[in-house]
Design a binder for these strands. Structure first.
Length: 495
RNA sequence: GGCGUUGUGGCCGAGUGGCUAGGCAGAGGUCUGCAAAACCUUCUACAGCGGUUCGAAUCCGCUCAACGCCUCCA
């Protein structure tokens, strides 16, 4: 028997059996990118991990509403809640409209999700589209006495909240320690305590993005958008909230405080955090300057890269580790992943066109048992907190059987039609629909045409006209015509 | 300084009390016009030191090393 889906919950720090609030529906919220520059490979890992979660939940039959936001305002330069909004700053630097920046990098992000074969979320809300709701939540928190206004800015009163609730339960922090270790930065005097965070910030005169509010012109704090959009689309309590491990504190901790403060209940049942992609053992991040942009990877144009690596190679590389482990980026690992990926995808091509052949061989119980165990192990792997690495291992075991059937080393009859079909659907489902790996055709088909034309020329020279006709027909069927000209043999697109 | 995580064979990377992970690389074989693929067999492991246990890579303690969060970050 395959056991039920279990998820590691960052809140309880345990693996828990997944029980949706209202089956078969599942609400899942993932913190999306801040669109002030290109997303890098580390960001991609997180979104890819949750794409697999989304796909697997759907595969299990759940009706998933997957919300992934676009942060297009409210992300300050540092958590002192001073400094400048990232979008505004970039807009000023590039002499562009803030929304032009947002559009540019949102487009880039969307392109990448397609390149990596990720499904779009059900809803992709933006922070600027929910200013009204953010003002409302801020007002509610003010009304409840959990926030205070100073000079047109509104801050969340963490100490007061912590009297009745537990601030720090997600990240395992103690409020007293945080109060002590907080850094005293300039003009932080507006806050009662250093750990208080902004719900609404007054816009300085040069701040481009600003909205009217009961407290004057300003813009929302970073943490607010996720609380607002999560509850708006998924309810006051929903099933899964995901994001990178580096968002656990303070971002997700603040989200909990805001929601609990506003609605009096925990917003999320299962918190999931993906671990970091590292380079030479160090976290890949924009601020450390060691991040790879996806296109640098695809072109190989980066000092740390020996050669280019394709999107699916990269995806396979990432899926070969568990989302909760750090994954170290290296050329050797990528090269190994490329071979593994090709092996797996060749298997997909093969199994798709394989049909059961009744070869009259007797059923072999031992082999059937073996195969059944592998198939079960594939499901168990995914049910065990989406263990894609383990699932891939099992798929390779399954692939051995597929290849053996193909080469005749294993008789179809030994398995029987039913087991064969099970192998086929399992392999296809897992590779194509769950891990979502796809074939990468050589981008330049012209080389193939040239090779065919060469053979055509030889056949023509040998007056092997049967062959000549065959090649011409084959090319024509693919929209290519061969032209025998006085000056030589050429090819062209059929008009 | 506080909180936390990790250390698996040549490389990557699952596993977490007794049962083959898997991929890449290496060796041998089957197959084969050549080459490749495929299949079969196979060599290198669980940071170190102690402890618990019939039994530990897996649990506990210590040591060493690396990393993450506490500043924006997926």
């Amino acid at each position: 028997m395959v056991e039920k889906l279990r998820i590691y919950n960052s809140l309880s720090k345990k693996k828990e059996t997944f029980e949706p609030l209202e089956p078969p529906f599942v609400g899942m919220y993932v913190c999306g990118p801040t669109v002030y520059s290109d997303v890098h490979l580390g960001n991609i890992r997180t979104f890819m991990s949750f794409d697999v979660v989304y796909r697997y939940l759907t595969y299990l039959g759940y009706k998933v509403r997957y919300v992934r936001n676009i942060t297009d305002v409210g992300h300050l330069e540092n958590d002192a809640d001073e400094g400048e909004d990232k979008i505004s700053k970039k807009a000023r630097l590039e002499h562009l409209e803030p929304m032009e920046i947002v559009q540019k990098y949102t487009n880039g992000f969307h392109e990448l999700t397609q390149i990596f074969n990720m499904k779009p979320p059900s809803i992709e809300p933006s922070a600027t589209g929910h200013i009204v709701e953010q003002i409302e939540m801020t007002q509610t928190l003010l009304d409840k006495g959990l926030a205070y206004e100073v000079n047109g800015s509104v801050y969340f009163d963490v100490a007061k909240y912590d009297k009745n609730h537990h601030y720090g339960k997600l990240s395992g922090r103690k409020i007293e320690e945080m109060m002590e270790s907080g850094r005293a930065l300039a003009s932080q005097d507006e806050k009662r305590n250093t750990i208080d965070f902004a719900l609404w910030k007054k816009a300085s005169p040069e701040h481009i993005m600003r909205w009217s509010s009961p407290w004057g012109k300003g813009f929302p704090g970073w943490h607010l958008e996720c609380s607002v959009m999560g509850t708006k689309y998924l309810g006051q309590t929903f099933d899964i909230h995901g994001g990178g491990l580096d968002l656990q504190f303070p971002h997700h901790e603040c989200e909990i405080a805001q929601s609990v403060g506003t609605y009096g209940k925990d917003p999320v049942r299962y918190w999931m955090h993906t671990n970091m992609l590292t380079v030479n053992g160090q976290k890949m991040s924009k601020s450390l300057g060691n991040s790879f942009l996806p296109h640098e990877l695809f072109t190989g144009n980066h000092p740390l890269l020996d050669e280019p690596y394709s999107p699916m190679t990269t995806k396979f590389f990432m899926l070969q580790s568990h989302y909760s482990s750090t994954l170290d980026f290296s050329n050797d690992a990528l090269k190994a992943a490329r071979k593994g990926y090709k092996k797996m995808i060749n298997g997909l091509r093969l199994v798709k066109q394989m049909q059961y052949v009744d070869d009259g061989a007797p059923q072999d119980e031992r082999t059937i048992q073996q195969v059944t165990n592998i198939i079960e192990a594939c499901h168990s792997a995914m049910n065990d907190d989406f263990n894609t690495a383990l699932a891939i291992g099992q798929l390779f075991n399954l692939l051995k059987k597929i290849n053996s059937l193909h080469t005749g080393q294993l008789a179809f009859g030994a398995l029987g039609a039913e087991v064969f079909e099970e192998i086929k659907t399992t392999y296809i489902d897992f590779v194509e629909n769950i891990l979502a790996l796809k074939e990468e055709a050589p981008s330049d088909y012209k080389g193939l045409v040239e090779a065919m034309v060469e053979i055509y020329k030889e056949a023509k020279f040998k007056k092997d006209f049967d062959r000549v006709d065959k090649i011409r027909a084959g090319l024509k069927a693919n929209g290519i015509i061969v032209k025998d000209m006085k000056t030589g043999i050429e090819w062209a697109y059929e008009e």
